[in-house]
Design a protein around this nucleic acid. Structure first.
Length: 455
RNA sequence: GGAGAGAUGGCCGAGUGGUCGAAGGCGCUCCCCUGCUAAGGGAGUAUAGGCUCAAAAAGCUUAUCGAGGGUUCGAAUCCCUCUCUCUCCGCCA
């Protein structure tokens, strides 16, 4: 969420920055609502002040045993008007809030301007893509012919965009996440966390997935929730809530699309002591994405799944440190690829290609031989105070005053895509796949995946 | 699933309709006292927002006692709904 003060004082400039990332800010609507808000809020507070004053006087008069009827007469219609104005104010503020909640972050000065992913800027490259002197295959072909990867059965169980792994491949998948966690906790100073995989709406609003990207999420309904009963008219007096939040939102939970959601929200509604900063958290979780709107893209293989695993990195830091931290965090993710000996490049995303909450993002793209391309395997973002403002996540600054934190997150890495990269980059002419050295200790010393016994 | 008890400021804890953003204590900050330490004395110490203002400072003001709604001139206090925590029983990985 952007600072509403900034919108009030510098709207044209803000709208210009948002336009760079393809977002059209509703300037006229905002100005109208804001003018209305100011009027209504002033009036509401006037009436509230009068009510408070009158009530105080009634209290005093009663204490002295005086007649309160004349004082009561002064405010005969005050209650009704106050109620009306309060309702209007609440509606106006809800409308403003809805605009704010759906407005993306402002891009940092250093973010390249662009209209599409083609305008992303390559920052650096590591490793050299291997050349094959045999008929190189993609991960689906490799995994299936080894008898370790089975999309047909996965489709029977759940549908498209799910996968089933078995045997040493399933183990390699597990080994990857263990290796990543061990590296981040052992070498990069992160604290491992085990987190809920179902999160409430408030958490998803905090990190920015809601309200705008609801269709990307898998939504679950809590057992015992009875929509028909609850929506019967005249059921209770809560109807007509003015808060703008759904009355029933606590009856829904969402499967997390990334561990960024639970990890970042750990500091929601908190004022952190500055000596506890920076907070570095990592977690290995499944991630669930509906992939609405990506029909037909990456339909083959494990690249784009409804369910995949990821080791996530989250840092919660002092605002002055957040851009240094972004470089460090990106380096932590790169370190995994280097240890795995997988070639990659780092891209600075352009204004048009960044995610909703990010002020600046580096994508790390791993080399996939079968696609003859670098593909995203990690996305590292500095959200500055954007999420912190939504979450009311603050720390006590040098003056002892609460100030919004900066939040960062990045994949370290997407496990499924890393597995794909290993299968393709480490394939051998006989159909086996070599296991990167750093993973062998997690595989009881096994150094290659081979044809399963077919008996 | 059954029965019960709770939720108040950084922490503990008082407060069952009025002048309460909230006693008291602890903690913390500053000052005084003390050779040092300890003890003692005094002052201060929530958050968000609005208006005035070019801005800062300041002033005025509103909201917040788990959340939302209601009753009332007035709600931490009364009523309703929900959430969460705890205890006992049952069930369960």
């Amino acid at each position: 969420m952007l600072d509403i003060q900034l919108l009030r004082t510098d709207l044209a400039n803000v709208a210009g920055l948002l336009a760079k990332r393809g977002h059209t800010f509703p300037i006229a609507e905002f100005n109208t609502l804001e003018a209305k808000r100011k009027l209504l809020q002033t009036r509401t507070q006037e009436l509230q002040a009068r009510r408070n004053d009158t009530s105080r006087r009634i209290g005093n008069a009663k204490g002295r045993g005086e007649d309160i009827a004349p004082i009561l007469a002064e405010i005969t219609n005050l209650g009704d008007e106050l109620k009306q104005v309060e309702v209007q104010l609440e509606l106006t503020q809800t409308a403003l809030r809805q605009i704010l909640l759906r407005t993306p972050n402002l891009p940092h000065d250093s973010v390249p301007e662009g209209n599409s992913e083609a305008d992303n800027r390559e920052v650096r490259r590591w490793g050299t893509p291997r050349t094959f002197n045999f008929a190189m295959r993609d991960h689906v072909s490799i995994g299936e012919s080894l008898g370790l990867l089975d999309f047909q059965t996965a489709a029977k169980l759940s549908g498209a965009r799910f996968s089933l792994m078995k045997g040493q491949l399933a183990r390699l998948h597990r080994a990857l996440s263990q290796f990543m966690l061990d590296t981040h906790t052992g070498e990069h100073g992160y604290t491992e966390a085990y987190v809920p995989y179902l999160a409430n709406a408030e958490s998803l609003v905090g990190t920015g997935q809601l309200p705008k990207f609801k269709e990307d999420l898998f939504e679950t309904r809590r057992p015992g929730f009875k929509m028909t009963e609850r929506l019967l008219p005249n059921e209770d007096s809560q109807r007509g809530s003015l808060s703008g939040e759904s009355l029933f939102e606590h009856d829904y939970l969402y499967l997390i699309p990334t561990a960024e959601v639970p990890l970042t929200n750990t500091v929601r509604d908190q004022i952190i002591a500055s000596e506890l900063l920076p907070i570095r958290l990592t977690a290995h979780t499944p991630c669930f994405r509906s992939e609405a709107g990506s029909y037909g893209r990456d339909t083959r293989g494990m690249i784009r799944q409804h369910q995949f695993e990821k080791v996530e990195l989250v840092q919660i830091v002092h605002p002055q440190r957040s851009y240094d931290t972004l470089e460090e965090l990106t380096g932590h993710a790169e370190n995994i690829l280097q240890k795995l000996e997988l070639p990659y490049r780092v891209m600075a995303l352009c204004t048009a290609d960044m995610g909703f909450s990010a002020a600046k993002t580096y994508d790390i793209e791993v080399w996939l031989p079968a696609q003859n391309a670098y593909r995203e395997i990690s996305s590292c973002s500095n959200c500055e105070a954007f999420q912190a403002r939504r979450m009311q996540a603050r720390f006590r600054n040098e003056k002892g005053k609460p100030e919004l934190l900066h939040t960062l997150n990045g994949s370290g890495l997407a496990v499924g895509r890393t597995l794909v990269a290993i299968l393709e980059n480490f394939q051998n002419t006989d159909g086996s796949v070599s296991i990167p050295k750093v993973l062998q200790q997690y595989m009881a010393g096994l150094d290659r995946l081979t044809m399963q016994d077919k008996k």
